[in-house]
Computed example of a mutant assay.
Amino acid sequence: MQARANDWRKLVQRLLKAELSKKGIKYQDLSDKLAGIGVDQSADNLRNKVNKGILGADLLLQIMFVLNIKHIRHEDIEDMLEDICD
Results as ranks from 00 to 15, higher is better:
Phe65Ile: 04
Arg73Phe: 03
Ile69Asp: 02
Asp76Val: 02
Leu16Lys: 01
Ser21Asp: 15
Met64Gly: 09
Met1Ser: 07
His74Met: 06
Met80Arg: 09
Met64Leu: 14
Arg73Glu: 14
Val66Glu: 02
Asp86Lys: 10
Leu46Gln: 08
Ser31Leu: 05
His71Gly: 01
Asn45Trp: 02
Asp44Gln: 15
Asp86Val: 04
Ile37Gly: 03
Ala43Leu: 02
Lys17Val: 11
Ile77Trp: 01
Met1Pro: 00
Gln41Trp: 02
Glu75Ala: 12
Ala3Cys: 06
Glu78Arg: 10
Asp86Thr: 09
Asp79Glu: 14
Asn45Arg: 10
Asp29His: 06
His71Met: 11
Asn6Lys: 13
Gly24Thr: 06
Lys26Leu: 08
Ala57Glu: 04
Tyr27Gly: 01
Leu61Ala: 12
Ile72Leu: 14
Gln41Val: 13
Lys17Phe: 13
Gly38Asn: 12
Ala35His: 12
Ala5Gln: 12
Leu60Trp: 06
Val66Gly: 04
Val66Arg: 08
Asp83Ile: 11
Ile54Arg: 09
Glu75Ser: 12
Gln62Pro: 00
Ser42Met: 10
Ala57Trp: 07
Lys52Gly: 10
Lys26His: 12
Val12Glu: 02
Asp32Asn: 15
Gln2Ser: 11
Arg9His: 11
Lys17Thr: 11
Trp8Tyr: 15
Glu78Asp: 03
Val12Pro: 00
Asp7Pro: 07
Lys22Asn: 07
Leu55Trp: 00
Glu75Asn: 07
Arg73His: 09
Gln41Asp: 09
Asp76Ser: 06
Met64Asn: 03
Gly53Ser: 08
Asn45Pro: 00
Asp83Ser: 14
Asp7Met: 06
Lys22Asp: 03
Asp44Phe: 15
Lys49Asn: 08
Val66Thr: 06
Val12Gly: 00
Glu75Gly: 01
Ile37Arg: 07
Leu61Met: 15
Lys33Ala: 10
Ile54Tyr: 02
Asp40Val: 14
Leu59Met: 11
Ile54Trp: 02
Ile84Asp: 03
Leu60Gly: 06
Ala18Phe: 08
Asp7Phe: 02
Lys33Gln: 11
Ile37Pro: 02
